[in-house]
């Protein structure tokens, strides 16, 4: 192994960092370039259903044909930006509720008896042992008109008629918050459990009431955890397709569904690819912001 690495001119450290780069190259960059390529093509009835970008026209001439119309099309029709905006809205609301629920849970676990922590964290992760799809289906069983929740409410006499909960926006929010809550709790917990509790004692000594101590010490210190948790929830929620289609009102306009229609119903792979590229840009921007904030923080520690 070593002579091979040497021959390739790789030292131990470079070889180790090469692995994640190779991974990103194979499973992120190359697929991305393929999608980008298709987004500049034109659809046609053939296999594959789009025109090639590069063409040899004999005589050693290579033609490149770029079609920018797919991106222009996304601007012309209000369907696309409305769907993007609505997806971002749904993801933001879901992220907010995940934070609202996740913070107290992570806080309680981080401050609990160390021996209990592992069990509590296990309980948070436990649902992942069941397939995601199955857990969303379980919510159908809970929310439907003759489902668990409605029957329970009828039984205790809180309602007289079942409430229509399935196929509403409420069901979508329940589904997203439930599915992504662990992604909020895990980074928050990792952050809160590391916190130096003597800082709170110092704050108390200096006259802070517990809630003031929380607001002035714990909350600012946990900001990196909040940021990480929010991004981990927000990013997949923007492109969510399964939960709205199983639990939601069909009228809920989400970009995932628009992408599906372009790809499968219109069979217009180039426009579908353009939608995906723009969606990716929407997701990469907050990620880069996150990265920069983290770098700034790391820099601060070194000083």
């Amino acid at each position: 192994m070593k002579p091979l690495l040497k021959r390739l001119g790789l030292q131990g450290r470079t070889a180790v960092t090469a692995v994640p780069y190779l991974w990103l190259l194979l499973f992120f960059l190359i697929p991305f370039v393929i999608v980008l390529k298709i987004s500049f093509s034109t659809s046609q009835i053939a296999m594959p259903p789009y025109e090639p970008l590069l063409q040899w026209t004999g005589d050693k001439v290579m033609q490149i044909k770029l079609n920018l119309g797919n991106f222009a099309f996304l601007v012309e029709d209000d369907l696309y930006w409305k769907a993007y905006l609505n997806s971002i809205w749904v993801a933001s609301v879901s992220t907010f509720f995940c934070l609202l629920l996740g913070y107290p849970i992570a806080y309680a676990i981080a401050r609990s008896n160390p021996s209990a922590r592992n069990i509590l964290m296990l309980l948070i992760v436990l649902p992942f042992w069941t397939s995601f799809l199955l857990r969303v289906y379980a919510w159908i069983g809970i929310l439907k008109n003759n489902g668990l929740l409605n029957n329970f409410l009828l039984w205790i006499g809180a309602i007289e008629q079942p409430i229509q909960m399935l196929q509403t926006d409420f069901a979508v929010y329940v589904g997203i918050v439930y599915s992504y809550l662990p992604f909020m709790i895990l980074p928050l917990y990792a952050n809160l459990v590391k916190m130096d509790l003597t800082l709170l004692e110092a704050a108390a000594d200096l006259g802070c009431k517990p809630w003031q101590g929380f607001l002035k010490v714990t909350l600012p210190l946990s900001l990196p955890g909040i940021r990480a948790g929010c991004l981990l929830v927000f990013i997949p929620a923007v492109g969510e397709f399964v939960i709205p289609s199983l639990l939601g009102d069909p009228g809920m306009l989400m970009i995932g569904k628009v992408l599906w229609t372009e790809f499968f119903n219109n069979r217009d792979w180039p426009v579908a690819s353009a939608v995906a590229i723009v969606l990716l840009l929407f997701l990469v921007v907050p990620m880069m912001y996150f990265q920069r904030a983290q770098d700034a923080e790391a820099g601060g520690v070194h000083r």
């Binding site: 199955l134 857990r135 069983g141």
Partner: peptide, 11 residues
């Protein structure tokens, strides 16, 4: 528990 049963029955 109830959810698991519901999931199973759906399945």
């Amino acid at each position: 528990h109830a959810a698991a049963i519901a999931a199973l029955s759906v399945l």
